[in-house]
Design a protein around this nucleic acid. Sequence first.
DNA 1: ACTAGATATATGTCAAGTGCATATAAATAT
DNA 2: ATATTTATATGCACTTGACATATATCTAGT
Lengths: 216, 216
Amino acid sequence: MSEPYDPAAFPPLAVTVDLVLMTVQGGRLSVLLQRRSEEPHKGKWALPGGFVGVTESLDEAAHRILADKARMTGGWLEQLYSFGDPNRDPRMRVVTIAYFALVPVESLAPALAGHDDLMLAPFDALPDLAFDHPAIVNHAATRLRGKLDYAPVALALLSPLFTLRALQDVHEAILGTKLNKPAFRRRMLDRGWIEGTGVREEGGAFRPAELFRAKP
Amino acid sequence: MSEPYDPAAFPPLAVTVDLVLMTVQGGRLSVLLQRRSEEPHKGKWALPGGFVGVTESLDEAAHRILADKARMTGGWLEQLYSFGDPNRDPRMRVVTIAYFALVPVESLAPALAGHDDLMLAPFDALPDLAFDHPAIVNHAATRLRGKLDYAPVALALLSPLFTLRALQDVHEAILGTKLNKPAFRRRMLDRGWIEGTGVREEGGAFRPAELFRAKP
DNA sequence: ACTAGATATATGTCAAGTGCATATAAATAT
DNA sequence: ATATTTATATGCACTTGACATATATCTAGT
């Protein structure tokens, strides 16, 4: 910031936070959408979001919006990217800070139940989205795929105890490809993100797998 | 954005773009700083930046500020991260979108000459910075180091024709470590980012190296 | 009980990538 | 010419991951 603040030349802008809340449901990477009840784009699906309060940090605003949609246990939240095209909202100039969130699908159940203005849309069948939300959603998917290999993001999509098979299913859903089982297994164990519990899953029709958990 | 816009509950905020303009000078990774001429933090060093105009996208604002400081030939500009702590500016609420820029040091010479409110500060000897600019600068350095291996960012710090030795010097300056020469050479050629010109550098006291250029 | 079937887990081998040491090539200075 | 210095090339060990295959462990069915 070099020049002094001149409100006439540089009027303040509306600032929002939009949330790309992703989860894996039925083997497909999906994103939470909310039907718009107001113009513009009334009736279209859009990312959940909200304006940033004056006394609130960006992270706090993102947490607030996330907490409204999901029980935030074992999830992941990080800033994604900021979008500020002058025409992205026809009403007025809005700059949005997009956030990237991951939660196990069970954490979304309470919010989804009985709210028909909310839905989980799979990435391979997204509806027509409002504003520039298609670009935001694509940005999030790309980031997720890119981080999969060097950050324990996939763990945020699983419940606290999980099998290696379940972890692999999550990776395959995100990448859209099949992975080699022994190689995946060794890679995950080498990363040092997870630890075995010694306990096996129960109820399966075949040999039960060991349950793992995220390392603290 | 879910709720309707209520200016009383969510007044607009000032939005700025701050630029972390980095280069390698004398074998050291450095950042362009500007001395503040106004309160707050008057006299302190800070990142160059400015308010975002109403009709201007974030990228356009970043380009405008960059063009003011450097001849933008062969450089790199990308959005870094947004900072919006409510108290980051004591005057008022300011959200800043930080950008990450790389240019060869020669592109900065015109701006630096005769402007004693501008300086290139090496990362290993940064002065006391205004606002939350220390955090922004650290974020940029981390991103730069992280991208070095999988994106051709180092090329943006060199003139169009360069030797592999010069490219290695840039990498070493950024990472702060010495690298193995044959391994570095092979790695760079495998990446497919550069191509030989068949022409050799001239004037050196010893065997002249081949000049390379970035692939289109 | 035993066997078949299915899945979890372990191992062996190969190719690619990287660090390190060393060898060869090409220029200048004396 | 020869020494010196740097560029470029090559050989070798080590690590990592893909893939194939082997072994272990459970249930279901006879």
